[in-house]
């Protein structure tokens, strides 16, 4: 995303008196990090940022941390900043009635991609001391203690952004900035999924085992996911029924990720948060992307586009044949 900080602050200042709070981002502990930020008072607005480091999908907080269903007593709405991918999560939450459309004021931010901190660390000579990170056109400029590096933006943005189909928010009350051209057509093949599918069956198993073996079960992927809404009732942690034991072996790690993926079948909006937050670098979203591709092919459905639609695995059609 290009830097929209000023435009965002201007807009929020104008409407803040009508809002209960605004979910946005603020700078993190260093120039490569960003923190979700709850704007609660007028003076907080100047801490807001919106740029290529606005990673987090803020709709996560709507369903899990606050009441976004009942209308507010004083009629004030919750403001939420969304990128294209985040807006799809919001639509999915509206579909499932975790968020009421009337309760939120959606500030849409067209996005050309968010950065992947790991890729940047691999690109710059002195990743330990980064002073500033800025996108300038199609270039990314990173200043470290050892000088300035410039490279193509595409080398530093997240995997999900390279295959982005919806850079522009699908729902919004206001759009800040001009719409962006999508990188991929809606029916284009997912290149990452294709790379895994090119392997033989045995190699695919080895690939996934090798990836999932690193899992430390911190549940960051689950907790960052806007659509993992079961919260403290997740079957990962119940002893009855006991889907998962305390063993840290391959069977349990594999099973955990199958649970996560299958519970998101037809619901995942590919915001990529699970993959970004993984502390051990497992391409978690890659599992869900395949399920999405299957559902698109089989049922011609894309999650998080139409607020009126019902997720396909929560409904049926008697007319279907061939399955």
């Amino acid at each position: 995303m290009d830097d929209k900080t000023n435009a965002l602050r201007e807009h929020v200042k104008g409407i803040f008196s009508n809002l209960e709070l605004v979910l946005g981002w603020e700078p993190g502990y260093d120039p490569l990090h960003t923190r979700p930020f709850y704007v609660r008072t007028e003076s907080d607005i100047d801490r807001l940022t919106a740029n290529c480091l606005s990673f987090q999908n803020l709709t996560r907080y709507l369903a899990k941390s606050m009441n976004a269903v009942d209308p507010a007593a004083d009629g004030r709405k919750i403001g939420v900043c969304v990128k294209g991918c985040d807006s799809r999560s919001l639509v999915a939450l509206i579909q499932e009635k975790f968020v009421s459309r009337d309760r939120v004021y959606v500030i849409g931010l067209p996005c050309r991609g968010t950065l992947d901190a790991r890729r940047i660390r691999a690109l710059v000579p002195d990743p330990a001391r980064i002073r500033s990170v800025n996108a300038e056109g199609d270039e990314l400029v990173v200043e470290t203690d050892r000088g300035i590096s410039r490279f193509a933006l595409d080398r530093a943005i997240a995997r999900k952004c390279l295959q982005c189909r919806y850079p522009n928010p699908v729902i919004h009350d206001v759009l800040i900035g001009d719409p962006v051209t999508p990188r991929l057509k809606i029916d284009a093949e997912n290149p990452s999924v294709a790379a895994v599918e090119a392997l033989s069956l045995e190699d695919r198993l080895l690939f996934w085992e090798n990836q999932l073996d690193r899992c430390i079960r911190c549940f960051a992927c689950r907790n960052a996911c806007p659509l993992c809404v079961c919260q403290n009732h997740c079957i990962m942690e119940t002893r009855m029924p006991k889907w998962i034991t305390q063993y840290r072996n391959m069977n349990e790690k594999f099973m955990f990720h199958m649970i996560h993926a299958l519970h998101l079948a037809g619901r995942c909006t590919e915001c990529g948060e699970c993959e970004r937050v993984c502390p051990v670098g497992i391409p978690v979203a890659l599992i869900k992307e395949k399920i999405n591709a299957i559902i698109y092919e089989m049922l011609d459905y894309e999650s998080g586009i139409d607020p009126e639609a019902v997720p396909p695995l929560l409904t049926f059609s008697p007319k279907e044949t061939g399955i």
């Binding site: 069956l201 190699d203 080895l206 690939f207 079948a265 299957i294 089989m298 695995l313 049926f316 399955i323």
Partner: peptide
């Protein structure tokens, strides 16, 4: 009707995981 959708998705998904 619910089941066949779910199972067909799973059947197509399993080979992807090996």
């Amino acid at each position: 009707f619910y089941a066949r959708r779910r199972m067909e998705v799973l059947k197509r998904f399993l080979p992807y995981m090996g």
